[in-house]
Each structure stands twice: as structure tokens, then as C-alpha cells.
């Protein structure tokens, strides 16, 4: 007979277990080693306990990231779950760090843990927020850059959720294209 942990009887279980990662560059470590797992959770209550406990993204030092991925997927292109995929990218200007970054990031997290993409949720690997001097970025990573239907549904859902705040443009890039090029020359597969 299968036993259920007492916590799970009173907490609200999530469809997936998610892991929160923190990235901070340190000169004596490899880039991969600078990605640190903070915690994993699989209930609504544990998500909020973690989220309420950590610094908001807007208070991170420039150069740092938060990532939240399904358990077992590392927040990097090279991971086997990500390597054929891509990301919806939301670019924020400098002023938006104080006004919108935290809201956007929270909305993206809620979409993911709530499985708001419905049958397309299986295509979602995770999301990353990059805090950068030239402008912050939020990326929603999907598993396969060829699955146009899922990519568009996921992008449209993100866009409609973020409309609560302001007009935003979302661009989808394949990781393979981003890896080969630098800066603004990356070709976008979709813009919505």
C-alpha cells in the first residue's frame, strides 16, 4: 500500500516539481558551477514559502539570475531537455526594473506552476530572469523550437497575462541561433 506524506494531504500539490536556481558569477568558478540550486518544491504552499523568503529579482545585483525549471532540467542550453528548444524573450528597459520586473517574473512563475499552458505545459522547461545593466530580460524556455503550435500558444498566454501591466513584445529565439550569434543579430522565429 502506498503511503502519502502528511504534508501532501493538506497542501495543494503541483503537477510538476520545480527547482529554483540562483546564478552569480564568481571568478574562480566555471559558469556551470555558478548556477546554484536553492530549493525544490511541489506544492502551492511551498512555492510561496520560498518566493516570500527570497529577495525579489529587482534587488539582485547586476549580473545575477534566478531560474525556475522543472526538476531535473538545468538552466542551461546544453541540458538535453533544452538543447533543441528555445525561449520567449521579454526585454525590459532600465526603468522597468523598479516598476515591472518583479511583477512580470511572478506572473511567469504563476503561469508555470499553475500549468496555465494546459496541454502545451509539457513543452515548458522553465524560465530565467537576467538582471543586467543594459536592461533586464525574462526568458520562458521551451523544449522544441520546431513545435510552432505549442510555442505560439505559450507565447500568447504569457503576453495576455503580462498585458495586465503594460504593452510588451515577446520574441522567440531558438537556443541554437542564440549560441551561434551574439547581441542583437539573433534571428527571431516569432514575434508577438
Amino acid at each position: 500500500q502506498k503511503t502519502v506524506a502528511p504534508d501532501m494531504l493538506i497542501k495543494h500539490p503541483l503537477q510538476n516539481t520545480w527547482t529554483l536556481w540562483f546564478f552569480k558569477i564568481e571568478s574562480n568558478r566555471s559558469w556551470e558551477d555558478c548556477q546554484v540550486e536553492i530549493a525544490s518544491f511541489n506544492t502551492v504552499e511551498d512555492f510561496w514559502a520560498l518566493y516570500n523568503h527570497i529577495e525579489p529579482a529587482s534587488r539582485l545585483k547586476v549580473g545575477c539570475d534566478y531560474s525556475m525549471f522543472k526538476q531535473g532540467i538545468k538552466p542551461m542550453w546544453e541540458d538535453e531537455h533544452n538543447c533543441r528548444g528555445g525561449r520567449w524573450l521579454i526585454n525590459l528597459n532600465k526603468q522597468q526594473r523598479s516598476t515591472e520586473l518583479d511583477n512580470f517574473w511572478m506572473e511567469v512563475l504563476l503561469l508555470m506552476i499553475g500549468e496555465s499552458f494546459e496541454e502545451h505545459s509539457d513543452e515548458v522547461c522553465g524560465a530565467v530572469v537576467n538582471v543586467r545593466g543594459k536592461g533586464d530580460k525574462i526568458g520562458v524556455w521551451t523544449a522544441d523550437a520546431k513545435k510552432n503550435d505549442s510555442i505560439l500558444k505559450i507565447g500568447e498566454k504569457c503576453k495576455s497575462q503580462l498585458k495586465v501591466y503594460n504593452h510588451v513584445a515577446l520574441h522567440y529565439q531558438a537556443h541554437s541561433a542564440a549560441q551561434q550569434k551574439t547581441g542583437s543579430a539573433i534571428r527571431c522565429l516569432f514575434t508577438i
Binding site: 500539490p13 503541483l14 503537477q15 502551492v44 518566493y51 506572473e107 504563476l110 503561469l111 499553475g114 496555465s116
Partner: peptide
Amino acid sequence: GTRIIYERTFLLQMRNSP
């Protein structure tokens, strides 16, 4: 099986529940 879906409003309500 059935996917466990939560609405945004519900998730936000849960934020400060004890």
C-alpha cells in the same frame, strides 16, 4: 492522467494564507 491546473487568482489568494 488529469493535469493539476491552478488559476492565477487562486494562487495569489494562497500567497498569504497561514
